[in-house]
Design a protein around this nucleic acid. Sequence first.
DNA 1: ACCGCTCTCTGAATCGATACAGTACCCGTC
DNA 2: GACGGGTACTGTATCGATTCAGAGAGCGGT
Lengths: 360, 360
Amino acid sequence: MGATLQTVADQVGVSRSTVSNAYSRPDQLSPELRARILAVAERLGYPGPNPSARSLRRGKVDAIGVLLTANLSMAFRDPYAVAYLRGLAEAAEQRKTSLLLIPLPHNDQEGALDAVRNAAVDAFCVYCVPDWFKALEIINFRGLPVVGGEDPAITGQLSGEVGFVGIDERKAARRLAAHVAALGHRRVALIGHWITDTSVTGPVDVHPDELRYYVSGERVRGFRDALVAAGVDLADVVLINAAENDRLVGAEAAGHALDRQDRCTAILSTSDVLALGVLDALAVRGLRPGRDVSVTGFDDIPEAAAVGLTTIRQPSVERGRIAGELLLDPPADPQARHRVLPTTLVVRATTGPINQESSS
Amino acid sequence: MGATLQTVADQVGVSRSTVSNAYSRPDQLSPELRARILAVAERLGYPGPNPSARSLRRGKVDAIGVLLTANLSMAFRDPYAVAYLRGLAEAAEQRKTSLLLIPLPHNDQEGALDAVRNAAVDAFCVYCVPDWFKALEIINFRGLPVVGGEDPAITGQLSGEVGFVGIDERKAARRLAAHVAALGHRRVALIGHWITDTSVTGPVDVHPDELRYYVSGERVRGFRDALVAAGVDLADVVLINAAENDRLVGAEAAGHALDRQDRCTAILSTSDVLALGVLDALAVRGLRPGRDVSVTGFDDIPEAAAVGLTTIRQPSVERGRIAGELLLDPPADPQARHRVLPTTLVVRATTGPINQESSS
DNA sequence: ACCGCTCTCTGAATCGATACAGTACCCGTC
DNA sequence: GACGGGTACTGTATCGATTCAGAGAGCGGT
């Protein structure tokens, strides 16, 4: 109970340094002595160097902090986040680095920020964290390297070592909406995750330039760009806030678009998860996706292919892997620390030409 | 750069202790002084108490280590593991505790064990880690609390504070195999994850009592129990090892069972993920699941319902949540630290009565 | 016999914070 | 005016390791 380096050193009759070396620098002492030390350590029940003490002295903990979504357990519901995490884990695994998943409790901004302040890590990986959550500032204040996938403008202001791996959100969204507009849709609903609020799901009346959460905001702005370019009257575009990135919430949001007299003919969501909920909502009302109402998602999670969802594909596992690599082996060239990955428009069955009959 | 408690203390003109209190025990000093201290700290760029130093002194890090599958990134491929992790994250989140995902690199036993030795955590949660990986021993040696879901016999030998949350693997497997036997199947193949080897997928000739990985071993033994009870000749039972818990590997393993002249009429796998691969293998060969060959899985992941897979349902999110609760709020009563959760046989379309025509 | 070199091992300084006993002072009370 | 009881802050010991300059020994070469 409570054996330390010193205890072992005293027993063996060598200095503490030597015992330390036995564990951390085997080449610094003779193999025989090392064997003797380890044997005594085992006998005394010495569990090896205390990790906290070691990292205090070394100034390094071999772990990177992961900030995933506003709320950790939520992240495990989103297949895209899981895939991202997998890529991150692959990169970390190869470099013997642990991943510290930091809890971000709901309804406790201050507590969440404390968690970021107190995390024992060498760097941070931030994914899908809303702008109003001041995590980046704290990380910056701590002077730790960080890789994010959000607003490049914000990360550009940080002083520490910063990386970026993401996509051109707005451009991809534009491509998707252009496809929908080209099919003839003119009355459209846009469902955006967290664009105004994290507590209420429903229609909102905000100018797209004032949307809050960067990722969704850019996607919605991209949608609008394309719709305007196609000559759609913005008065016919309904904007709906989704309080969570969740299938049930997606269905609820879709309800607000479907249960009104001038029903829209297309619903664009800022994520596949929400779009799956939209499809549920259609099913409940006996509407056919791609015929009565066109539906699109974003991300291209595996289930999207299964249900034939038209969406934007963005790299998932690879994105996580690159994030990990940027943190663990930062390229000298700052240019190389800013990676914009390609996206693809994937057209499937949930989008189709406007149906004269039911849109009348 | 490099500001510490002392730096701040000197600037403000108070003692180091007081600055420490300003952060960790606000009730120990006047609000005015605290405000002044925090202001100076901010100005000096002091990022708050160093997490390593704090945890060294406190003897606590507010993190629990997670050992997930032999290989971390693999865990994110298994929907069951992800669900488990979600439950764990929920429990951790409520108690402001972080989750340290520990990398367990392939082909590096020693490195993996070091990772367990060096992890800065207060406790461990072990899930689906094979017996031959001596992680439990190390954790025990470190004297940290642990909750596992594997072999209760092993965990029973540990001296530290130990919890268990799992299911009666063998009983559940028995129920499943009894269902298959009752449908008339007599030539059966069993696919087991890691039952002999982690490098080769294919038929093996081992007595079930000598299988390696506890979870799969128990499941296979349960299968055999029921088959024997139903009068099946064990000579007609093929045992196939799966080198990974992976869909592709499942398909490969199934190939070994299907591409032989005395083709089996039922294939039982130790996990849903493997069973999905088995279904792929059937599809490739133009065989109908539930008609030509009956197929079963284990776990009841969401996709199982989608494809109509007969399987055993076991709690996933709940299992993770309970594991977290046992670690973070250990019940005083040792009995309550051993939780065996219920399982259900879920019969769907992939099992059916033996088909006279194609089994002849 | 002496130089220089490698190989092992030692000692002191250091990493940055927290716990706890203790001091100083103020205020009200009998 | 002595005393009890708070409140606000300080000082010191301590958590457990790593680092690095350097000491001493052994050894081949000249």
